[in-house]
Amino acid sequence: MERIQINELSFEVLTAGDGPPLLFLHGGDYFAQHREFFDRLARHWRVVVPRHPGFGNSERPHGFRTVHDLAYLYLDLLERGDLGKATLVGSSFGGWVALEMCIRCVDRIDRLVLIDSVGVKFGGREERDIADIYALASEEVLRRSFFDPARMAPDYARLSDDELTAIARDRQATALYGWRPYMHNPGLRQWLHRVSVPTLVIWGENDGVVTQDYGHKLCRSLPNSRFEAIREAGHYPQIERPDEVADAIGRFASAEVL
């Protein structure tokens, strides 16, 4: 993986393909399972996938503690200009980062795709919008994350120490950024009208981490958005159904109007 330098910060970036620029912001876990999806995207896009500071082998500066820091970092990345106007795609936790970027500035963002995104609180204080994955047994987390957990569950015993350490760092950093308030910013909802770019909200029909109902609410809260469900997919449809998700992004990108 390449490294990229923004300001004082150096972090890992995976790049692939040629075509219009697509910036993909990953979620909290299962990064290694994205290969097929990235390969599929790379047929039509110049895909840029930063490993967020604190994740994988990207360092996290001491001051990086909130999703706001990640949002400004990627706005800085887009402002460098070499990507032009990018399609921004965020999955799960990465969708939250993407939303935080878009309420600040969409000058360098062409379109937005949210895949089973978190980040917004809709329910009351005693309702849980987002499953508490840290209080669920690991089998239950898998069951809620994937339509077919038996096929998708990583075999950790076969991974190298480096691969396992990267996963542990991913989980540590997700907790650091998203522990409390849990996977959302209480103030984000009131600014969603600023997400003025055309937006596609993609949702795995079988997502048990954030349900389709949440996805519909998110879609309705955005000024210029439409919803597309992916069948036989959980919280990470791009892992379980890479072709369907890449096709949906392709159709959305080439559509003249929503």
Partner: peptide, 23 residues
């Protein structure tokens, strides 16, 4: 078990070993 090692409580190296041995 889900309460025995919340992410970030132990070092990534220790958590990596825990993943390997107990998933």
């Amino acid at each position: 078990p889900q309460f025995m090692n919340p992410p970030g409580y132990a070092s990534p190296a220790l958590s990596a070993q825990a993943l390997k041995t107990s998933g």
